[in-house]
Amino acid sequence: MRRSPRTDLRWSDVTPRASFLSRRQMMAATAGAVLSAMPRTGQAGIATVPSDYSTGEAPNSLADVTGYNNFYEFGTGKDDPAAYAGSLTTDPWAVEIGGLVERPGSYDLADILSGVTLEERIYRFRCVEAWSMVVPWVGFPLSGLLDRVGVGAGARYVAFETLYRPSEMPGQNHAILDWPYREGLRLDEAMNPLTILATGLYGEEMPNQNGAPIRLVVPWKYGFKSIKSIVKITLTDTQPPCTWNQTNPREYGFYSNVNPAVDHPRWSQASERRIGAGLFAGRQETLLFNGYAEEVAELYAGQDLAQDF
């Protein structure tokens, strides 16, 4: 029997992730002033450019962002995705783009990303459950992809679908929701420059529990609109079915814009708790369109937001 060479190295010799991350943070801070003007390599390798759409608010820690997730495909607990999403195969990955588009087809993730400039977008993230975070996403505008495949005449909505693979997504073995998860946007919402497809966060590839390898981020809507692990994008002329809206249309509208004046039937949306703020931090006021009114309010001109919630 062959024996592996003996070494004196133990697991305790491995630099803890927290330490190397904080070292990187220090190095990044030092280098930041020099590098801020040019494309920079994130903490571990994805090159991104900064974005004017980023908030100046301090992002939540990587532990917050990757340890507290709603991703029912892996279970309903907030820590279920971190515990069970490791088994998800994200390579190979293709997205089927179809419906009212000029160049429909199955697009490999590498094709979708080729020639794309990835940006760092630090966005506020507001969950319909009245908690919030700040997340440094890595992504690119959805409008860029839609332009490349060509929006067909008559297209008015964009429908999205998450992977359905119960063998790797244990939550899909339970009929908690009508799988696969579906979401949708109006075409003008999809084309808004704030709407991105994200392939990473904190300068690294997207962790599985956050919707690897590619997900939607619509920062002025409640988090469940930002569908994860997308395998299908369809342009349609009618409003597409959305999972939570179908599950409970009284509680979850098609638009689901963040709005402190329109309460969830079971709880108030007037305020939110910022995750990671500490035991006694209390609540902060929720902002209309999650603070992105300047960019998106005109999309809804003339609409009654209490009616079209």
Partner: peptide, 20 residues
């Protein structure tokens, strides 16, 4: 105290308005 951050008015409103 921790969840509502002692926002008494919102808390009282929730007791009356939110069935759960």
């Amino acid at each position: 105290v921790l969840d509502m951050g002692l926002l008494i008015q919102q808390a009282a409103g929730d007791v009356l308005k939110r069935p759960y």
